[in-house]
Design a protein around this nucleic acid. Structure first.
Lengths: 239, 239
DNA sequence: CGGTTACTTGATGCATATCAAAGAGGGTGG
DNA sequence: CCACCCTCTTTGATATGCATCAAGTAACCG
């Protein structure tokens, strides 16, 4: 996906961020006029053609960006190898400020895109001196992370949900009795169904399938033996 | 749901938390022996019969609890008025430490339950002097909150997902152009479908239904006019 | 003007919700 | 101790809804 041939970078230094028409839409608005010059000195401009990749999931995070025009899609690699679109960014949004040293997601241009680019390490040093900007960045980051995470969990089959629940219960039980091969379900099927977002019948059918495939065995409705936990974990497509 | 007749509270002060058999399973383990006496002085014991309510969603949060036996279900009231089971708690878990002054969820006994009860305000004062305990509490709280939130979003129809997305886009657009009656979708149907966890056809069908019900109108595939945003919001059963 | 891509529409099949009812377990009262 | 009733669990039949497959239409580009 590293189609850098379609990625055009022009190190054009604007006269000043002060002249930026979209400044008040972005985090840049929280930089006072006094500090704006030092801020602008870090910046260079990037232009992407539609479909071009800005950075990929897992790549070293050298830069932080602010979108000044166009739309990008943020992709997230799933454990299964496939990737899903976690969200879209447009004018005024920023991206690339990962916690670690690599990007935790990929970014591709949907339309033609124009961005302001900041070297990550130099921006981080500057952040320490500009509390309002840092605050602004962190606030936006947490918001968008939460929203993005939400939709990724939407598609789950009854078997997947039940498997996830059983493994979670087994894991929680491990802190008491070590091997924890049998878990005790104190709640009714109806409560379990409610919690998993299913009907009682669907929960039962899911249990039936797990039993048929010899993944679990039930001595009675409340006691579930996990015969092949690793196979159970395999059912959960993506965490 | 306030079946307090079935809620038996015995103010039995244990000789000491030091004799507690499940202490090492709970957050109490992070209280050193030296501080344990002051900690134990706040504690009283509570016993619940199966089905009994410990506290209800929105009630004033006077106490914090640690489960020493049995299983509770945590219920969360949804905007639509119905409530859903957000999770189950058992031995070693604690509950009731809300951020505000009221409980953000309800708690009902599934089996017979025994708990240790601590007055919230006095515990909070003690927390300030016991950093390890506070750290332990906060860590557990964030984990379980995140896990609980995840499953609540599982059941969404294509129309609900699309409506939520359109409203989010409209809201995001408001920071640029004020009334924002028309939103521009730069991304393809396929990208949109991927993001919403649907197929392109399902997205289309959802658009068709929204058009048929006069909630939105499309001049072309990329421009969506929200004719009745409030009705759109009504489609989203629960946030 | 032909080719390509994206959007839209229709037909089919699978999976789960919904509706309905029959067995299993536990508790109560006779 | 037994019979009865009640709740929970389990099973089956039907219907809806979304995915999948397949084809047609419209816009864009060479």
């Amino acid at each position: 996906m590293l189609s850098d041939d379609r990625l055009f970078v022009r190190d054009v230094l604007l006269a000043s961020c002060a002249e930026c028409g979209v400044r008040d839409l972005a985090v840049c608005a929280s930089v006072g006029d006094a500090d704006l010059r030092r801020f602008a000195e870090l910046m260079s401009e990037v232009v992407l053609a539609p479909g071009a990749s800005l950075f990929t999931d897992g790549a070293p995070a050298y830069h932080v960006f602010t979108v000044t025009a166009g739309v990008l899609k943020i992709t997230k690699r799933l454990p299964s190898g496939k990737s899903q679109i976690a969200g879209f960014l447009s004018i005024g949004d920023y991206l690339g400020l990962a916690h670690g040293k690599t990007y935790t997601c990929g970014a591709l241009a949907v339309t033609a895109v124009r961005l302001c680019r900041f070297p990550r390490d130099r921006l981080l040093r500057l952040l320490a001196e500009l509390p309002p900007l840092e605050h602004c960045l962190r606030a936006r980051a947490s918001n968008e992370h939460a929203a993005a995470h939400a939709l990724l969990l939407a598609r789950k089959t009854p078997v997947e949900r039940l498997a996830a629940f059983l493994l979670a219960e087994a894991h929680r039980g491990e802190r008491r009795s070590r091997p924890a091969p049998v878990i005790e379900l104190a709640m009714s099927r109806a409560d379990l169904a409610d919690h998993l977002g299913l009907t009682g019948e669907a929960v039962n059918e899911a249990f039936a399938r797990l039993k048929r495939d010899r993944l679990v065995s039930l001595s009675d409705p409340a006691h579930v033996r996990l015969d092949r936990p690793e196979a159970l974990a395999g059912l959960i497509a993506d965490a």
